[in-house]
Design a protein around this nucleic acid. Structure first.
Lengths: 202, 202
DNA sequence: TGCATTTGATAACAAATGTTATCGTCTCAC
DNA sequence: GTGAGACGATAACATTTGTTATCAAATGCA
């Protein structure tokens, strides 16, 4: 099921100029990534396990979800070039509170936690890269802040409109009941919102 | 209205052992903080302005809120020993998207952005302190993640119960309509939740 | 002290949202 | 192919939540 190899790293070329590293280090780091192709509904991280890997998506899409009173609640979606990790588990060494699962057949690059830790430790000594890392964490924080904002102030319809504005592809690629739980509403209500919008526009 | 001074830094002693710094640096850093006493409803950061200061609360409480279609929506509460800053504005040099305002008469210590930037740059060269800083950002991220979780999966009543569990003091110290908007519900509904809980328990 | 304002509870009604059930379409494994 | 299950729309009804209005108590300020 999993086909891993260490060749064909041209996928990473698009990121090359973003990291001021010499070629040796670059090769070292990109060599930590292993390619894998998996079908839809493959579980990458299991809720309750301590995750040992993070993933970069070359092709496909992925969701993070958790079980709430028997129902599955989707927490986040990931698409091409997103990195997927249970950052809270990585940081706190707790079991993951979410399951991470492919939605489509996907091409992923995985990297082991030991390697991530080493790379972070190394780049933290280089101010420019350390700042990049800090920026990345802040960006993630701001995304969640924005979600918090949105849940406090917006109606479900507005949240839906925001979502299709920010991730238009989501409509085509993600089953609607995942989107509904991500928005915190029932599938029936999402369906109603869609038909309202369709009627309103015609 | 603002009484600032540079003496009486014993307030900071409680944090002394958390920071592996020599005494000179410690004095340098704590000297960047200025004490101020302000009445309730003092605006510390104005929505739309580029904030120049951050605050540490010695005594009192503070809320961050923003204007949404004419209504004020409370985003976050702060109590003793919390630090208050518009981190997104600091990081991105954007105008603040929230107003920060005292709820009670408060004793605060403020620090200027230039000083923060210098201190962060300096401690980033010391691995132990750099890690503390990174941890702090992650912690903030996890708090917002938890909020996001909660809005997706919990009812308003559950969110209210969570809140009084995590910040019991909030009930005594914060007007209920601020709490309602923080929970994303109307004041009437919060009132109903409270009376339901009271009836259920008796 | 006394008055204006803020705060909070409650009722009545309106609107939003959830639940359950049904149906048609689509997809995918065999 | 084909049959089971996944998916999405819709209806009918139940429940939750919001809105507006009213009142009483608490609070702050002149």
């Amino acid at each position: 099921m999993t086909i891993a190899c260490k060749i064909n790293k041209q996928m990473f070329d698009q990121f090359r100029n973003k990291f001021p590293l010499d070629d040796d280090k670059w090769t070292d780091y990109t060599n930590c990534f292993n390619r894998m192709e998996v079908p839809a509904k493959t579980i990458l991280i299991q809720e309750g396990d301590i995750p040992k890997k993070a993933f970069l998506i070359e092709k496909g899409c992925v969701r993070a979800w958790f079980n709430n009173a028997g129902k599955d609640v989707t927490f986040q979606f990931f698409f091409e070039n997103n990195t997927v990790a249970s950052i809270e588990s990585f940081r706190k060494k707790h079991p993951s509170t979410v399951t991470v699962e492919t939605i489509e057949p996907s091409v992923l690059w995985f990297i082991r936690k030991e390697d991530i830790d080493r790379i972070i430790a190394e780049i933290s000594e280089i101010p420019a890269l350390r700042d990049k890392f800090t920026d990345a964490i802040f960006e993630r924080t701001f995304v969640y802040m924005k979600h918090h904002f949105s849940f406090i102030k917006d109606t479900p319809q507005q949240r839906y409109l925001n979502l299709i504005k920010e991730m238009p592809q989501i409509i085509q690629r993600v089953p609607q009941h995942y989107i509904a739980s991500y928005l915190g509403i029932s599938t029936v209500h999402l369906s109603r919102i869609k038909s309202q919008l369709a009627r309103g526009k015609s």
